[in-house]
Amino acid sequence: MILAILITSFTFVLSGALHYVIVSSAIRHLGAATWHRGRKLVVALCVSGIAHVVAASLYALAYGAGRVLGIGDLSSETPASAMDVFYFSLVSYTSLGLGDIVPTGHLRLIAGVEALNGFLLISCSAAMLFLFMMDEDKAKSP
């Protein structure tokens, strides 16, 4: 259980830090760009999406590490491949919880924390994008 807590904590902190660095850097650079507002928003959305895929990938690596270390597995009709682990991570990160792949053992802790972290980071992206667009509106007003 201690190993699962360590893996989960490390992944939680790292994914949050990377998300912040990626999204805030993009918004800072886009704020200085002279592009059309719509183009800035599209780029900000794409960068935010990339940040979320990076975070889900970190959790997929955490599941892989947990499987190698023998603290749990992902059960499904067939043995889980690397793509299955990544798919499960994306489903957990977005809190969809489809149930076609199920964590066993202490990987359940990682899955639960990933859903919480995904919700927090998706909400954080929405807030940062909202503030970015509000700043764009203020810059345009007389």
Rank of each mutant, 00 (worst) to 15 (best):
F10W: 06
T11Q: 03
F12L: 07
V13G: 12
L14S: 03
L14M: 07
L14P: 04
S15H: 02
S15N: 09
L18S: 10
L18P: 14
H19E: 15
Y20L: 10
Y20M: 10
V21M: 08
V21L: 14
I22P: 12
I22E: 02
V23N: 01
S24T: 15
I27T: 08
I27L: 13
R28C: 04
R28H: 06
H29V: 06
H29P: 13
L30Q: 05
L30M: 11
G31I: 03
A32Y: 00
A33N: 14
T34C: 09
W35K: 04
W35N: 14
W35R: 05
H36N: 09
R37S: 13
R37D: 15
R37F: 15
G38S: 09
G38T: 01
R39S: 13
R39V: 02
R39D: 09
L41H: 12
L41R: 03
V42P: 12
V43Q: 02
A44E: 10
A44N: 11
L45I: 14
L45N: 03
C46E: 11
V47P: 13
V47Y: 08
S48L: 03
S48N: 01
S48F: 00
S48C: 06
G49F: 09
I50V: 11
I50L: 10
A51M: 11
H52E: 15
V54R: 00
V54I: 04
A55V: 00
A55I: 00
A55Y: 00
A56M: 06
A56L: 01
L58D: 14
Y59T: 14
L61R: 00
A62R: 08
A62C: 15
A62S: 12
A62K: 06
A62G: 05
G64Y: 13
G64R: 12
G64E: 13
G64N: 09
G64D: 14
G66L: 07
G66W: 01
G66I: 01
G66T: 01
R67L: 06
R67D: 10
V68R: 12
V68L: 14
L69P: 08
G70A: 10
G72Y: 14
D73K: 09
L74N: 10
S75W: 13
S75Y: 15
S75D: 07
E77F: 15
E77V: 12
E77W: 15
T78S: 08
T78W: 08
P79I: 00
P79T: 04
A82P: 04
M83S: 03
M83W: 09
